[in-house]
Design a protein around this nucleic acid. Structure first.
Lengths: 202, 202
DNA sequence: GATCGAAACGGACCATGGTCCGCTTTCATT
DNA sequence: AATGAAAGCGGACCATGGTCCGTTTCGATC
């Protein structure tokens, strides 16, 4: 707090108050996001180019890249919206996904829900696969949540690892292999995951 | 065999004897692969462009793409070499990875080995991630093998699913998150996986 | 409201993955 | 050896992600 103890030019960048966005920048971000959402809905992720988005939004390409860094960054932002909604449902929504149900029920609801979510956003998730991005929001949260529920269940062992191991089979890359290549019906995947949970928690 | 019973134009494409490669084509494939291996060793996967490979090999870019289809296809071929070696070690190498050791030991050796292999080839694997490719060689074989070992162990349940679930935490995408983002030491990941195995097989 | 530095803009430009198509090579047949 | 057609070749060309930098806009300060 004290400017003498923590002068602005010495503070860690991550801890700085992050100067507010300029109004034109904020406006363009909105316009660009809206354009991207529309285009993705119209033609699907794969058929949308960055030039398309910039043109539809009526801004220069440079602006688009300045705001989102890369195509992956943009897609990551699109994901983030539904991801946040889902997280909110997990943290504070109605049971059994949200709090109120016993931990095991919550855990099973979590798996089923995450599975469906990942399959629904498969294209977007793969388009957003960025080296370094979306790790906080997307890969970490599910693991943290499972870790928490395992704790509630009184499971013993390396909970962070067990959580990772339970979340791993829900990753799209694994789900796609099962659904598209091996034609495993969703119900069986779901049943398999529930069985896995029971074995892991003993 | 009999041309009257199986005339060439009626046989299923996949079952045809696959006319041998022309000599110039075979030569170029070799030259291209060698060039690719060299360049990847020299500078790493990310710093090698398709033009680089074609130039080093002394052939046109069109030829390169004709042979391997895409960058991902080329990288997939590079992977395939070490992948085959590893598969051979699993199928027929010395125990405990190969046959001869009791199933549980083999399974644990499999996990440790696969983990290290995936981490070593992380860059290549991600560069080869092709929609549809490498599914037979890379994602299927480990799962099949684990499924077989689970059978040997007398595990009950949906073995294909359990195998998938055990292989999933060994995928690079998961390993990278743990190693690079969360700084989990390899030994702990290995111990975690072993514990997971014990829980799954009961 | 005039001033001014920082932030943002935009589109020309670059790099690289991938395609196309006219020319060349191979090789089975004669 | 000559021949012909299928396979292969190569590099110009295209599409798209990403960068650069001169110009414009914002908004804090006076």
């Amino acid at each position: 707090m004290d400017p003498i103890l923590v002068p602005a030019d010495r503070a860690l960048p991550l801890l700085e108050p992050e100067r507010a966005e300029r109004s034109d920048a904020a406006h363009n971000r909105e316009v660009l996001l809206r354009a991207a959402v529309e285009l993705v809905e119209e033609r699907g992720v794969c058929a949308v180019t960055m030039d398309d988005v910039a043109r539809r939004a009526g801004v220069g390409k440079g602006t688009l890249f300045r705001r989102f860094g890369s195509r992956e960054g943009l897609m990551g932002q699109l994901l983030d919206h539904s991801e946040r909604e889902w997280q909110a449902a997990v943290i504070g929504g109605p049971p059994p996904l949200g709090p109120g149900a016993p931990p095991l029920e919550r855990l099973l609801a979590f798996g089923a829900s995450r599975m469906v979510l990942n399959l629904r956003h498969a294209e977007l998730i793969e388009a957003a696969r960025h080296p370094g991005a979306r790790s906080l929001a997307a890969l970490s949260f599910p693991t943290m949540h499972v870790r928490y529920l395992l704790g509630e269940l009184g499971v013993e062992g390396d909970l962070p690892y067990l959580a990772t191991a339970l979340v791993a089979p829900l990753e799209i890359i694994v789900l796609r292999q099962q659904v598209e290549r091996e034609n495993v019906p969703l119900a069986r995947i779901q049943a398999g995951w529930e069985d896995l949970v029971h074995r892991v928690i003993r």
